[in-house]
Computed example of a mutant assay.
Amino acid sequence: MLFDSHLHIVNRGKLGYPWLEGAGALNRDSLYDDYAREAQRLGITDTLHMEVDVAEGDIERETDYVKELSRQPSSLIRGAIAACRPEYAGFPAYLERVLADPFVKGFRRVLHVVPDDLSEGALFRENLKRLAGTRLTFDFCVLPHQIAKAIALADLNPDVQFVLDHCGVPAVKDGLREVWTSGMTEIAKRPNVVVKISGVVAYADPDSWTVESLRPFVEHSITSFGWDRVIWGSDWPVCTLGGGLSTWVAATHALTQGASADERALLYQLNAKRLWSF
Rank of each mutant, 00 (worst) to 15 (best):
T45F: 15
L48T: 04
V54H: 06
R78M: 09
D33C: 12
T63R: 05
V98F: 07
V104T: 12
E96D: 14
G43E: 09
R109S: 02
E62Q: 07
E51L: 01
V54R: 04
F107R: 04
R108N: 06
K105V: 04
L99M: 15
S70V: 02
A82W: 03
S75P: 00
G57W: 03
G106W: 05
P102F: 00
Y35C: 04
Q40H: 10
V98S: 06
R61I: 05
S75I: 08
D34V: 14
K67Y: 13
V66T: 02
R97H: 11
A100D: 12
R108H: 05
L99C: 13
E62D: 11
D46N: 10
R78S: 11
L76Q: 02
M50F: 02
G43Q: 04
A100E: 14
A82Q: 07
T63H: 05
V54E: 02
F103R: 01
Y94W: 10
E60A: 13
V52Q: 08
Q40P: 09
V66A: 07
D34N: 14
V104P: 10
E96M: 00
Q40T: 14
A89I: 01
Y94F: 14
R97S: 11
Y94N: 07
Y32K: 00
A93Y: 06
P73L: 08
E62R: 00
V104M: 06
L95F: 03
E38G: 08
L42A: 03
Y32S: 01
Y94M: 11
R97G: 11
Y35I: 03
P102M: 00
G79S: 09
E68M: 14
A39R: 02
F91N: 09
R109H: 09
I59K: 09
I81F: 00
E60C: 10
P86I: 08
R41Q: 15
H49G: 05
V66R: 11
G90S: 15
M50T: 12
P92C: 05
T47N: 11
D46E: 14
D33H: 15
R61Y: 09
P86W: 03
F107N: 02
T63Y: 08
R108D: 04
V104W: 03
F103S: 01
R78H: 08
S75A: 10
R61N: 14
E68N: 13
T63D: 13
V66K: 13
E38R: 14
Y65P: 01
R37L: 15
A55P: 00
D46T: 13
V52F: 02
D34K: 13
F107M: 05
L69T: 00
C84F: 04
D34I: 11
K105N: 10
E62W: 03
F103G: 03
R109C: 03
E51D: 12
P73R: 14
L99Y: 06
P92A: 06
P86C: 11
R41G: 13
R85Y: 08
L48H: 00
V52M: 08
A55V: 03
E60L: 14
Q40W: 07
A100H: 12
Y94A: 11
R71P: 03
E68I: 13
L95S: 05
A80F: 06
G90D: 10
D58K: 04
M50I: 12
I44T: 04
D64N: 12
S70I: 00
Y65A: 07
A36R: 15
K67P: 00
L95M: 03
D64V: 12
P73C: 09
V54S: 01
V52E: 10
